[in-house]
Amino acid sequence: MNSKSKFFTGLVAAAAIGIAGAASASGEPNAPGAHVHGAGALNVVVEGNDVIMELTLPGADVVGFEHKAESDKDAQAVHEALEKLENAANVFVLPAAAGCAVVEAHAESSLVEETEAHGHANENRHEAEHEAGHGDFGAIYEFTCATPDALKDIEVKLFVLFPSLEEVDVQAVTAKGQWAKELTPSDNRFLLAF
């Protein structure tokens, strides 16, 4: 894609967000959160043996649009993306030494109407739904790790999965404190045991 056509896609996408933003703003009491193309957010909490990761991605980077999926093709793209996201192994590489197993992984998008229930909704899921606001994709992963102290060097593969993604802002909370890092395609690893 040359830079000119990229610019126009950008414009179109920006217009789409403007509309989506205006539409959603009327229904909500508070201002919409920041929405930046190319930027995702990853919240990580480690408590005891539980590791919970919440991921938010802009629709523009996941499926290339941020309007409601109208055509079957759009809906198909969203469902494929959700399936990709629901496989935690597609998204993260956790160190083998930590002995982590996926307890649950759930993804959803506000671009499609939720018709079928994706399993029973627990509290965290509810929050992930809440987060997925303005044409965003949200996913939540829960792991149990035998040795959470070995959680060094976690690789985030989102940049391979969604090439237009430029950064992922990680916020991590563990018993030792809070910490943040900005991941980029060239620096896509972070460590939790700090």
Binding site: N30, E47, V173, A180
Partner: peptide, 27 residues
Amino acid sequence: SKTSIFSLQRDINNYRGEALMAILPGV
């Protein structure tokens, strides 16, 4: 429990009564 930190942060940021903000001091 630290696991509720991000959900509480969102609830505070979306509080209907007034414009509140919750921050993670470390971040």
